[in-house]
Amino acid sequence: MRAEERQEYVEYVSGRLATLRQVAYLLCGDEHRADDLVQQTITKLYVRWRQVSHVEHLDQYVRRMLVRTFLDERRRPWSRVGLLAALPERPSPADHRVEDAMVLRAALAQVPRRQQAVLVLRYLCDMSIEDVAEALSCSAGTVKSQANRGLATLRRLLDAEAVSALREGN
């Protein structure tokens, strides 16, 4: 790769690292794995940089790469490790919030991975149905049905407090 291309790459990636890390963290719930997802994604991006650096929606393209890296992660032996393990270590000023997050994260981890991705991108990253569909290369209808399925599964897994909160619309 020519020096100026490499410089473009470094500038682009430097400006997106925080966002990518945030999305990766929401997807997997763990800082270390989030870093690993981003590292893999920007490595893949470097390999394809010449072909993709001038595509019209580069941010969306990179986000899609990140999501696919997350989806592919299921094949890796350590992919099921550490969701809960990492959370309690973290000091937090609001304990019940951490508790809520732990319960939710544990439940979310049991939802099929594609549904996890849909729920996180749609509801935590606030992406539109169309953007989620684009990121996952599927139809808007599939995003909706997966969001519904994922929510139904979550509902089944969550404890009474979470369920009653939802029932009261809190």
Partner: peptide
């Protein structure tokens, strides 16, 4: 759904370990 998942909205703690030079 957004309210249900709201507790998960947190910033990743600690400095990023992502290494651009390593990616290159």
């Amino acid at each position: 759904a957004a309210e249900l998942l709201q507790p998960l909205v947190r910033e990743p703690a600690g400095p990023s370990q992502v290494d651009i030079a390593q990616a290159i």
